[in-house]
Simulated scan of single mutants.
Amino acid sequence: MPAEVDAPARPDPQPTTERPEHTAEPDASDALESPRRAGLSWRHVLIGAVVGAIVGAAIPGGLQLAERAAASADADSLRAAAIEYLTAIAEGRAGDATAMVPLPRSAGDIPDAVLQSADRIEVPEVLMLHIDGDAGTVQVSYEIGRDEVTRTLDAERADGGWRLTTSLAERVMVQTFSASVRAQIAGFPIPFTTPVHLYPGSYAFDDASDEILRTSSEPFTVDGDEATPTATYFDVQLAPAVAAHAGEVGVAVAAQCQEEPDCSIATDFEVVYGGGTWVQLANDSSIDVSVQLMAGSEMNSQWFDARMRIMRDETGALTEWLCASLDDYGVPSDPCPVVE
């Protein structure tokens, strides 16, 4: 009988990296993973945590940058509104400036020609801005001649931008002893009874001198600051030769009065022209004049006014002198005494 041969020994089982078959038990756990797969999952978790931390830390910084960009754009909008307003004034566009910052209704409209006739502002600049919600302030500066002016303008948010609410147009009061004589700047009548609003600049009245009248005034500067009111003077007088003739006519009127028994000037009083005249433009064809007379002696003297009207033709030339009696305050209507 042949000898029995032993079966070869089975090798010991080796670890496997393959996923085992599912268990047959319905409640059994199948969470077993290979070593390599388990290691990758751990690294992914760590990397994801680090990336999330970085992104989370960057969000507040991004919001700050966005807020800063929005604030910068808001400031640029306010600055642009101020520069646009200053530029309109510097270029003599009074109408555009008033459209940006309206004036009171009582101020009336000032034509561009008035502002364009002035020595206007130069080097307009925005110095500082401040924004508090829907309200803002702008500190601006500009030069008028050799003077630098600094103003603070208020602003409010409107129509998605900014609108200035402080005007640089300043009230100017023109004073005169001849309230009915027309003062003009660039041909525009400037009223005496109510203040006129003018934008910053150095102005001069039109010279209305002719053969009969002489106008006199000094240039004046409007700095655009209501805290420093602007007042100026405009004067109209007779031309020297006409004023001298008016004085002679006044003395002749007084002499006629002295010949009457009820005259207020004593017959022994000497009457002389005091040198003062008051002029008022009655209308385009006549000028009312009041001449100061002094009557009396070294020990006793009185002052009187002789009233007369100078008539002119359509060219402005003198055509006739009309006088009133010394004690008559009506409209001069009698021919004046003839003087040599």
Score class of each variant (00 low, 15 high):
Pro35Trp: 10
Gly133Lys: 08
Phe188Tyr: 15
Ala186Phe: 07
Pro195Gln: 05
Ala243Cys: 07
Asp147Leu: 10
Pro2Asp: 13
Gly95Phe: 03
Leu168Pro: 00
Ala158Leu: 14
Gly61His: 09
Gly92Arg: 03
Val251Gln: 03
Cys263Ile: 02
Asp284His: 11
Glu259Trp: 08
Ala252Phe: 02
Pro337Cys: 03
Asp147Ser: 12
Ile265Val: 10
Gln280His: 11
Thr232Pro: 03
Gln139Leu: 05
Asp327Gly: 06
Pro35Lys: 07
Phe220Tyr: 10
Asp119Gly: 11
Ala204Ser: 14
Asp268Phe: 11
Leu86Tyr: 03
Glu143Thr: 13
Leu46Cys: 09
Leu127Gln: 12
Thr166Gln: 04
Ser41Val: 15
Asp132Val: 09
Leu127Lys: 12
Val174Tyr: 00
Glu25Gln: 13
Ala75Ile: 01
Trp278Asp: 10
Glu122Cys: 05
Glu218His: 11
Asp288Ile: 01
Gly330Val: 03
Trp162Leu: 04
Ala70Asp: 12
Gly296Val: 06
Asp327Gln: 13
Arg43Ser: 12
Ala88Ser: 11
Asp284Val: 08
Ala80Arg: 15
Asp154Lys: 14
Met294Ala: 11
Arg105Asp: 13
Glu270Asp: 12
Ser290Thr: 13
Val101Ile: 13
Glu170Ser: 08
Ala90Pro: 01
Phe205Ile: 04
Glu340Met: 07
Ala169Gly: 13
Ala75Ser: 14
Pro261Met: 04
Ser286Thr: 10
Ala204Arg: 14
Pro13Gly: 07
Val271Lys: 01
Thr221Arg: 09
Pro26Val: 11
Ala239Trp: 03
Asp12Gln: 14
Ser117Thr: 07
Gly56Ala: 13
Ala254Ser: 04
Glu33Val: 15
Ala183Met: 10
Gly48Pro: 05
Leu115Trp: 01
Pro60Ala: 06
Ala107Ile: 06
Ala295Glu: 00
Glu314Phe: 10
Asp334Trp: 04
Ile59Cys: 02
Pro332Leu: 00
Pro200Phe: 04
Asp207Ile: 05
Val289Met: 03
Leu103Lys: 06
Ala69Val: 10
Arg146Lys: 12
Gly56His: 07
Pro335His: 09
Trp162Ser: 01
Glu211Val: 08
Thr87His: 08
Leu40Asn: 12
Val123Ser: 15
Ala252Gly: 04
Gly247Asp: 05
Leu326Glu: 00
Val253Asn: 00
Cys257Asp: 04
Gly160Cys: 07
Ser285Thr: 12
Asp74Ile: 06
Tyr329Ser: 11
Met100Gln: 14
Thr165Pro: 04
Ala317Ile: 05
Phe177Ile: 09
Pro2Val: 10
Ala69Thr: 13
Pro11Lys: 09
Ala246Met: 06
Trp321Lys: 00
Gly330Trp: 04
Ser167Gly: 01
Tyr329Ile: 08
Ala246Ile: 03
Ser167Asn: 04
Met311Gly: 05
Thr277Glu: 09
Phe188Leu: 04
Leu129Gln: 01
Gly275Pro: 01
Leu40Met: 12
Ile121Trp: 02
Ala239Cys: 03
